[in-house]
């Protein structure tokens, strides 16, 4: 707990959530611009479609955001060449654990704010009804898990590699890969495909009415396995990061 508090102390006044806040605001403004004049059908399916849009947007945009967050958390020690010294004061595993928990708490708040903003957006543009609480909570949980995977991967890279260009470019490449995956299929076993596997809503294009039709997704066994893989990645990246960081010579 003390180490965790120290992590928060280190990021005090560093405006660590600035990039994420800017991303959420940009996303909200985009939503206002793109969805401000819905058709009657879009109004009826509005809150359902928002679950789809959130996932697709995040699949492409979030990997570099996670890279920035992880890099900001890890670069204080790199700049001061402090890792070696910190390891003499406390276990290196607990240092990794504290940074991971600190980052995970930040992204928990970030995605809660995102869902709140999107629900607000739905009411602002006049969607009918209310969001389905159970599906929104489930979607939030899956989003948190899939983006925690990306964060832990990026944190591991940022803590292991002093040159922060490498993890940040990895985040960018991950983003492009996610974009590619978005076009190929609706699930993926790769870490960057978690947002796709966790999308609870599918979209089908109706040629006759020229409208998008949204519906809740029926998961096949393979798709369920892809969802399970998100949690596998969580364990793998946490364990790998902790072990590799503990064995790293600084």
């Amino acid at each position: 707990m003390k180490i965790l508090m120290l992590e928060f102390y280190k990021i005090k006044r560093r405006k660590i959530g600035l990039t994420m806040a800017a991303y959420l605001i940009a996303q909200f403004l985009w939503g206002l611009w793109a969805l401000h004049d819905p058709t009657p059908q879009a109004q009826a399916q509005g809150f359902l479609s928002l679950l789809y849009y959130i996932s697709v947007l995040d699949a492409v945009m979030v990997p570099p955001i996670m890279a920035v967050l992880a890099s900001r958390l890890a670069d204080i020690e790199h700049k001061g060449c402090m890792y070696k010294q910190l390891k003499t004061l406390r276990g290196s595993g607990s240092l990794f654990h504290a940074k991971a928990v600190c980052g995970l708490l930040i992204i928990t708040v970030m995605f809660a704010a995102q869902y709140a903003l999107f629900i607000l957006l739905g009411y602002m543009v006049g969607y009918q009804g209310h969001p389905d609480a159970a599906h929104y909570i489930l979607s939030y949980g899956l989003k948190l898990a899939s983006n925690s995977v990306l964060f832990l991967l990026q944190l591991m890279l940022s803590m292991l590699i002093a040159n922060q260009m490498v993890p940040l470019v990895t985040g960018l490449c991950g983003s492009l890969l996610a974009l590619l995956l978005t076009l190929v299929r609706t699930y993926s076993f790769l870490p960057w495909g978690g947002n796709l596997s966790g999308t609870l809503v599918t979209m089908a294009w109706n040629d006759d009415t020229q409208n998008a039709v949204f519906s809740y997704r029926l998961y096949s066994p393979v798709e369920l396995a892809a969802v399970g893989m998100i949690f596998m990645w969580l364990v793998i990246f946490y364990a790998a990061g902790r072990i590799l960081f503990s064995h790293r010579e600084n």
Partner: peptide, 23 residues
């Protein structure tokens, strides 16, 4: 001084570019 923040800004700037272009 941070390595990551300007990259975050460029990322958000790029998204803003899409909005600016569409307007």
């Amino acid at each position: 001084r941070s390595f990551a923040i300007p990259i975050g800004i460029s990322l958000v700037g790029g998204i803003g570019g899409l909005l600016a272009g569409s307007q």
